[in-house]
Design a protein around this nucleic acid. Structure first.
Length: 814
DNA sequence: GAGCACTGC
């Protein structure tokens, strides 16, 4: 994301915050809570001070992280190890000896974790359109902005760059953070393009913010000459000259109109992030170059922030590379002299040292996951009152995606003058969110990553070291507003042993969906396609196999009619199989509901530990079907409840009571509508609106699974009973490979590999004995856990999967 | 009797 985009991001966000504040004021601020741990403080036993921080014994090296803005180079950022600096040996005081970390910390963490969920009002759709709308004031505003634009590095080299860009069909443009490349270059290009310009972004917010900013600069109303297009939100029309869109959106346009002839220039921004969709787009663009060879106006620009330019250039037939300098303040880097034994202790010590030894400025800490963040957060809260009075008061703030938006917003709100924000974040703060005011970065050097094991057909969640590029990016977060410092919680030699670049996503994820897209786009030879990064034979064959068993591909590996339909649907191939089968089995309505829920992350939140049993029990009570048939039916029941509640206020209250995510449910409704539309377009007029009285609730032929009282309970919002068996069978069509047979000792073994698995404790079926189960997700952490589990009748497998099920013994075995 | 990083259509 470019500097401007991000600063605009702040503007929008803080405006958003202002609106919220006002709204809250109007409501007489019913929520004056700040999650603090109070009780246990008389007997503090401050932790972390027992161990010496590795910085204590100094010998810490500092280096200049960033090249001076005036230096433009095509070699990797130089590491100037000559500039050695000593980190002042800050004494932490009071410093009791031999004190162990109190055992209560873990408990405390749980208790404070969700304290302020739902306390802030979650606004209804906030209209982000800001500023004037009449032509004259638009123009005035644009004129003012022009003065600022002229100070951007990229503006100064405008003519030189434009000459290259116009002359060449493909250009790789490297721009450091703050160069303004994402906002300026597309604008410069407008007069030189007969048709529209597309600029892709990996993230929705980035696309929206960039478009909003550029529209202002251009003196256009958003959605007119400058617009954007992201899922559920399109502010563009056929005369839009410059369109920012997510890379997923452009791929979708590619699938609908395969030569993208509506655009004369296509810009791929943030290419260095190497998301799976960006990589696919680059592959297609390379093919498009051949297809549109005669089209003199057609141009491609690849924009990237780091210096992996050669790879992109080489991929596009050694095209020219342009460099734009950035606007970045220097950041001093510090390393440990010995490895950290306990990353949380080291983190806390470092925070304290910064707090007592460094000038004002907030601290951003990068940790691997929620667990570490919550631990560190409550530890900091716990002895923050014990710190010397002269030092600023620390305000620890967690930041991760699973946190409700209201709580995430807290990192953007200013604190009092004598306070210092300590933001403890996951990777979300590396690219997705920019926190203003950060001057110090503490980097654990770790991140969590989901890795797909195609040999095993399952994913694992691992904590792994970051790359050098990632470390640079994290450190850079300290130098956005003025000089900063980055404290790396690893040694300098560790740093040099890190991989240079983060592994592209396509290497480590399940690519079945991508392969289906390629097939839909008529790619014959998948193995020799124009991959910028080849995912590897094994991964390809695993994906082809999956698609074959879902009947999306035929014996020749060609896409089937079913496959064509699946490719259009905006869900995984497994789930599109389910959708299409649900249509056949006449239970599409409830299946769409369930799939919409499955596609929203963090719909069901974890209650704090002291309320866990109580909340779980309450949830069980309202999910009678879920209790019996499993988590898929639970989603249907919950959504019915949510819809049936009349007022928004009551919906929110209900969500709060059960620890559900209100915004999540709203998102579910959007996805539900979209899926209904797609199914309508695929299968014609017989698909009715998903909203109310529809026909999908007709019972299937054999409903022996369901007794009368359940029939009654499932009628809640409809006149006809749910076809539970049909629903479950539809899902089984997509997830046959994820089925397991129950054994008398309550263990489960998968039908196809015989592997021992467990039902995740978050499932309603946890601890229950079922003859057979299926699940939509499997993650290996401490052991193999199935999530989103539903019961099945093992007999169904014979009916549904004879083509995969070689022998029946596997089933009859138990 | 556990605990999942981040995106996207």
């Amino acid at each position: 994301m470019s500097e401007l985009a991000e600063s605009n991001n702040h503007i929008v966000q803080s405006l958003d915050g202002e609106k919220k504040k006002k709204k809250r004021k109007r409501k007489k601020s019913k929520n004056a809570n700040i999650p603090v741990v109070e009780d246990k403080l008389e007997d503090p036993e401050p932790l972390a001070q027992n161990k010496k921080t590795k910085f204590d014994n100094v010998n810490v090296k500092a280096e200049e992280e960033f090249v001076e803005p005036s230096v433009v180079t095509n070699t990797p950022l130089k590491e100037d190890t000559t500039a050695e600096a000593k980190l002042e040996n800050q004494k932490v005081s009071p410093k009791p000896k031999n004190q162990k970390r109190p055992r209560s910390i873990n408990k405390e963490r749980k208790d404070t974790k969700n304290v302020s969920y739902f306390t802030d009002d979650e606004d209804e759709d906030v209209n982000q359109e800001i500023g004037p709308t009449d032509w004259k004031s638009l123009q005035n505003r644009a004129d003012k902005l022009l003065e600022i634009r002229k100070t951007l590095p990229v503006y100064k080299s405008k003519d030189k760059h434009m000459e290259h860009l116009i002359k060449n069909k493909v250009t790789v443009l490297i721009g450091e953070t703050g160069s303004g490349k994402s906002t300026q270059i597309p604008q410069f290009l407008i007069p030189h393009n007969k048709k529209a310009i597309a600029v892709t972004q990996p993230r929705r917010v980035a696309a929206i913010n960039l478009a909003t900013r550029v529209a202002e600069e251009y003196g256009s109303k958003i959605g007119d000459k400058v617009g954007y297009s992201v899922r559920f939100d399109n502010k563009s029309h056929k005369n839009t000259k410059l369109k920012y869109l997510t890379d997923g959106m452009l791929l979708r346009e590619l699938m609908m109109k395969s030569d993208l002839s509506q655009y004369s220039t296509i810009i791929i921004d943030e290419a260095h992030e190497r998301t799976i969709l960006t990589d696919l787009l680059m592959g297609f663009l390379k093919e498009l170059l051949l297809k549109r060879q005669e089209d003199k106006d057609f141009k491609i620009i690849i924009m990237s922030a780091t210096l992996d330019a050669e790879k992109f250039s080489h991929f596009f037939n050694d095209c020219e590379i342009l460099y734009v300098e950035g606007k970045m303040y220097p950041v001093e880097r510090f390393y440990l002299d010995t490895k950290s034994e306990d990353i949380i202790d080291t983190t806390i010590n470092t925070v304290i040292q910064i707090n007592q030894g460094e000038e004002e400025g907030d601290v951003l800490v990068f940790l691997a996951g929620q667990e570490e963040i919550d631990k560190a957060c409550s530890a900091l809260q716990m002895f923050s009152p014990l710190l010397p009075k002269e030092a600023p008061i620390i305000v620890p703030l967690p930041l991760y995606a699973a946190l409700p938006p209201a709580q995430q917003m807290k990192v953007f709100q200013p604190v009092k003058k004598n306070q210092r924000k300590i933001i403890l974040a996951t990777n979300i703060a590396e690219t997705s969110l920019t926190v203003p005011g950060v001057r110090y970065v503490i980097d654990s050097g770790l991140r969590k990553v989901k890795v797909w094991r195609h040999q095993l057909g399952l994913s694992t969640l691992l904590t792994v070291p970051i790359s050098q590029a990632s470390a640079t990016q994290r450190s850079g977060r300290a130098g956005r507003e003025r000089n900063g410092k980055a404290f790396r919680l690893f040694t300098e030699s560790d740093y040099h042993n890190l991989p240079k670049q983060t592994e592209p996503e396509i290497i480590r994820t399940d690519i079945a969906h991508s392969i289906l897209m390629l097939k839909k786009l008529k790619v014959k030879d998948i193995v020799n396609w124009s991959w910028i990064e080849h995912p590897g034979q094994d991964s390809l064959f695993s994906a082809l196999n999956q698609l074959y068993s879902l009947k999306a591909l035929d014996d020749n590996g060609d896409i089937t009619e079913l496959g064509e339909q699946m490719a259009v649907l905006p869900v995984s191939p497994h789930l599109s199989t389910v959708l299409i089968n649900a249509h056949k089995l006449n239970c599409l309505g409830p299946v769409i509901d369930i799939i919409a829920c499955l596609n929203v992350e963090n719909l069901i939140l974890n209650p704090p530990s002291d309320k866990r049993d109580e909340i779980n029990e309450k949830r069980r009570q309202i999910c009678t079907l879920g209790n019996k048939y499993g988590d898929l039916l639970m989603f249907k029941e919950l959504l019915d409840y949510f819809i049936a509640i009349n007022s928004t206020g009551d919906k929110k209250k209900w969500c709060k009571e059960f620890y559900f995510n209100f915004r999540g449910f709203k998102n579910v409704l959007q996805i539900r509508d979209q899926l209904t539309q797609y199914m309508k377009s695929l299968f014609g007029a017989d698909i009715e609106n998903n909203d109310d009285d529809n026909d999908y609730f007709a019972p299937s032929d054999d409903e022996d699974l369901i007794n009368e009282s359940e029939m009654k309970s499932s009628k809640r919002s409809n006149n006809k009973p749910l076809g539970i068996e049909s629903i479950l069978k539809s899902f089984l069509q997509g997830f046959v490979m994820n089925s397991a047979i129950g054994y008398p000792d309550r263990s489960y073994r998968t039908v196809f590999s015989g592997q021992l698995i467990s039902i995740h404790p978050s499932s309603l079926l946890f601890g229950k004995k079922c003859e057979g189960i299926m699940y939509t997700e499997f993650v290996y952490t401490t052991k193999g856990y199935a999530r989103n589990v539903s019961m099945i009748d093992p007999e169904w497998l014979k009916e549904i999967a004879p083509h995969i099920l070689g022998n029946r013994e596997a089933i009859n075995d138990n």
